[in-house]
């Protein structure tokens, strides 16, 4: 009991600087944002009322949820495949997979977004090649739309989806898989009815992380969406820096933070935090 207590004290002490930083740099200023949402331009619930009726805000919310959902499904599926190779592959496969997972972390999100523009735009690599081969006569609309946003975000988020999956795959007892095969189950069947269900907590953790990240994405949708596929973060930016309609921007922020908070609460309720890393 004493060891447990002092363990907890130690953990609290180690976390204290981070906590202090979060309070000073995020929580305190955010309280200001909350205040704006109730006071600008006039005190009251006017801005929240506007949220409920403003068609543009609502369509942006729906688009954001749709993009986040698609990105989550694609990223987790792709990350699952990569993680299987990383955790259970041959030594060479592991090294290659690890390289593919880590390298994206060294490249800035901006560089990656512009890289995708160079690949996907009308005169980008993909359209030029496809036209040169004669596969298509008109360039495909691959960027400055939702498709481009989804591609760029998925690419960015796959490595983040890998870690919760890897931890659940690592903690899996190999003998259970052997047992399934010994009982007459094929490799395929063992994968789908034993391996995948046993990594369920990893899948949930991974999906929630990607989904929450996607909701607040700014740079990638701003560049790859080209202003036509605006997501929430960009809308907040526009309301605050361009309209300027600080009160509405603040209200959208508050709703977004509450929504993300609710999702995180779900995440910590269903999986223990240590399973995330």
């Amino acid at each position: 009991m004493r060891a447990y207590l002092s363990d907890r004290m130690g953990a609290a002490l180690l976390m204290a600087p981070l906590l202090l930083f979060l309070v000073l740099a995020y929580a305190w200023p955010f309280l200001g944002v909350v205040k704006w949402s109730f006071t600008l331009p006039t005190p009251g619930l006017g801005q929240y009322n506007a949220l409920l009726t403003d068609q543009l805000v609502q369509s942006v919310f729906i688009r954001t949820l749709r993009i986040a959902a698609i990105v989550t499904i694609v990223s987790v599926a792709a990350a699952y495949a990569i993680t299987v190779v990383w955790v259970r592959g041959t030594p060479v496969q592991r090294v290659v997979a690890e390289f593919c997972i880590l390298v994206p972390f060294w490249i800035s999100v901006l560089t990656r977004a512009f890289g995708w523009v160079a690949l996907l735009s009308n005169r980008g690599l993909i359209n030029t090649w496809l036209q040169a081969v004669g596969f298509i006569s008109e360039p495909l609309a691959l960027v400055r739309n939702e498709f481009g946003v989804i591609v760029g975000m998925t690419h960015f988020l796959i490595p983040f989806a890998v870690f919760p999956l890897a931890s659940s795959m690592r903690s899996l007892d190999d003998r259970v898989l052997l047992a399934a095969r010994g009982l007459g189950s094929s490799r395929m069947r063992t994968f789908w009815s034993v391996f995948v269900p046993m990594t369920r907590s990893g899948i949930i953790g991974s999906a929630l992380i990607v989904f929450v990240f996607s909701l607040g994405f700014f740079v990638t949708p701003a560049i790859l969406g080209g202003g036509r596929s605006v997501m929430i973060a960009e809308l907040i930016y526009l309301r605050i820096f361009q309209s300027p309609d600080w009160g509405l921007g603040a209200a959208i922020s508050v709703v977004l933070v509450l929504f993300v908070g609710a999702l995180m609460a779900l995440l910590f309720r269903y999986i223990r935090p240590k399973q995330l890393v």
Partner: peptide, 18 residues
């Protein structure tokens, strides 16, 4: 293994936890 039809009991049982 899956075609041998040998029943196996592992050390630690290796039950399907889910």
């Amino acid at each position: 293994a899956e075609q041998r039809a040998a029943g196996m009991v592992f050390q630690g049982y290796a039950l399907f936890p889910h």
